[in-house]
């Protein structure tokens, strides 16, 4: 045990075991975590990722997101019982962005999410919304997005890919992990433009305890895919 004998108003946080200081940080408020992240590069790295849950109404999101700009991995969730309106002009430029209970999400929001990895759970986007997004995606609206996953209700892929130049590509695989339980529902479709593959669309189904969940993945060529991070093991590549 450390023999540290601090003064009355100091506490040597990083002289505690790593489990302890991690517990301390996880019990801080979001504002304190942000403030802490400005103290040094090591601390900045230590407080990633940020898991932000909006659980009360009337939270001013603009100043909050101004502070979130530097966060590499952001998990953002809005309590589904809250009538929260997420402003469209927010900046979302993270390496990885995971949205849960994204019932507030619209195409204009999505077109401002220029993140390398984007995972969306429980949104209300319709097939024609995703089609509209893909058209902008093809034209380079969100150039940093390399892999998008949308978990939604069953989709009509004919409508999702309507008027987008596509080609079946049965050789593309989304998963290489033998533990992955997702089943392909369509042959992977390459989105093409000027003879070049822009991305591949996968439509998959996961069934667990008789409950089916559907996923739409849009993946740029040769991108190494990292699946939804559950227990840090869902890692697969294209």
């Amino acid at each position: 045990m450390s023999n540290f004998d601090p003064g009355l108003d100091t506490f040597p946080l990083f002289q505690t075991p790593s489990l302890v200081w991690e517990m301390v940080i996880l019990r801080m408020g979001l504002l304190e975590i942000f403030t802490l992240s400005f103290c040094s590069k090591n601390i900045y790295n230590a407080v990633q990722p940020v898991d932000l849950l909006i659980s009360k109404p009337n939270v001013k999101l603009e100043p909050l997101f101004e502070r979130l700009r530097t966060v590499k991995i952001l998990w953002f969730e809005v309590d589904r019982t809250l009538p929260v309106t997420v402003p469209i002009g927010l900046t979302w430029e993270h390496e990885e962005l995971v949205l849960d209970n994204a019932h507030w999400l619209t195409v204009p929001h999505l077109l401002l999410m220029n993140c390398k990895r984007l995972i969306i759970h429980n949104c209300l986007l319709q097939d024609f919304d995703i089609n509209l997004y893909l058209r902008h995606f093809v034209n380079g609206a969100v150039p940093l997005v390399e892999h998008l996953t949308i978990e939604a209700v069953r989709q009509d892929m004919m409508e999702v890919l309507e008027d987008i130049e596509c080609e079946e590509n049965p050789n593309r695989v989304l998963k290489t992990s033998p533990d992955d339980i997702r089943a392909m529902l369509i042959t992977p479709m390459d989105i093409r433009q000027n003879g070049e593959t822009i991305a591949t669309v996968f439509y998959t189904q996961e069934t667990s305890f008789s409950i089916s969940t559907y996923f739409l993945d849009v993946v740029k060529p040769s991108h190494i895919c990292v699946g939804p991070v559950d227990n840090g093991v869902s890692r697969y590549m294209i």
Binding site: D9, F11, M23, V24, E32, T35, F38
Partner: peptide, 23 residues
């Protein structure tokens, strides 16, 4: 740990450096 976390409330980065003896 919650008690230690509460020490951060209302502090600036400079104050946090001092309170938690951050390098």
């Amino acid at each position: 740990c919650k008690k230690v976390a509460n020490m951060a409330q209302g502090k600036t980065p400079a104050q946090l450096r001092r309170v938690y003896l951050l390098p």
